[in-house]
Computed example of a mutant assay.
Amino acid sequence: MLRIFFGKDDLERLRVAARPDMSMELSLSVHALVSGHRDPRFKPWRDRLRASWNPRTALLFDLYTRSAIPEFLTVRRDPGATESATAEAPEEPLREHLRSVGGERQLSAFARGVAAGDRQARKLLGNVTAEYQTRAIDPYRRQIETIVTTEHGRRGGLTEPDQVLRSLHPALSWHRPVLAVPLAGGCRHDLRLDGRGLLLQPCVFGVRRPVIARFEDPGQQPVLLYPARINGPLLAEPEPTPSRTLTALLGQTRAAALEVIADHGPCSTKDLAALLGISTASASEHATVLADSGLTAKDRAGRTVTHRPTPLGHALLAGHLPAPPTGGVSQ
């Protein structure tokens, strides 16, 4: 049992994430495969994944046990950025996790290479993660976003922290100031938030009970992952977005930026950077090019600049251009 101790400041800093954590969604989706979780709502996802399965993906299973879930797999909007970010993940959290895995079973040669910082093993880890993302996460982004956004709105109607904590999940027990979270294997641990607060992260994949993450570093805000309400099967988008044609025209990141602005706009440059997993400076550069091309427009309110799609941007995302105006120059 994990006991999370809240102070007054911690209750004031309790919040529900408004958007999904795609890195954790990917990690939890692999855990669902490892643990054999058979929720019927995920059958279309499993069937589609099985049809395009690459045997190399099974290397990711070497990083898991039923109770150990890696937090260093890093998803970015662009799979190429995912590959780099995961391959270059900080070594200490990675080694600590694999020490935990090694305490439950013998590590594979691949896992030992990753733990040892072997360059080829780390590069392979990034490559396999990015490859898995394109099949298991990217085709479902819109539905994952919708599920988590809806969950955030549902929790937003609860004004008191006690109401939020009592309504999260039947496995949790809230008796102010302690939230009790069951842990695998009957482990016992106490966590004092000490003013850090707690982020409640709704998740689509893999969690049948709440999971605590990022709590061992006193400089980070802990995250409690809990299952979001899913009303129907998880289904892939009919076509990948952004389209291959749009990606070829604009480039992977810029096409993704246009899609994000259309989905979430008006959004600030900082929000755009967070959604794409890139720096604010890079997001600003991409947004400027899109605006200069007439695909987005900028609005300023004080010091904040927000971006919204233009009709031309919407038309390009939809795969067609608006018809030219009639009544123009006669021949």
Rank of each mutant, 00 (worst) to 15 (best):
P93C: 02
P324L: 06
G185P: 08
H31T: 00
M1V: 11
H314P: 05
A228L: 04
W53E: 00
L191S: 10
A89E: 04
L63G: 01
P210Q: 01
T150M: 11
R208S: 13
P79G: 06
Q133F: 13
N54R: 14
R19E: 15
T253H: 08
R176C: 12
P139N: 03
K8L: 13
C187V: 15
R119H: 14
D39C: 03
T310D: 07
R122T: 05
H264N: 10
P210I: 01
R48V: 03
A68V: 14
L179A: 06
L94R: 04
D39T: 08
L2V: 08
Q106Y: 10
M22V: 11
R56S: 13
D292W: 09
T241A: 14
K123R: 15
V305E: 05
Q120W: 12
K43W: 10
K123E: 15
R77D: 13
A136Y: 01
T288N: 12
P20C: 02
L246A: 07
P79M: 06
L316G: 03
A228H: 06
D10T: 07
G36A: 00
Y226T: 00
S330K: 15
S23E: 02
P210F: 03
P182N: 07
R166K: 08
G251S: 01
G126I: 04
R41L: 14
H37K: 07
R76V: 12
T82I: 06
R229H: 15
A301R: 12
R192I: 11
R196T: 12
R303L: 14
A115R: 14
G313N: 03
L124A: 12
A248E: 15
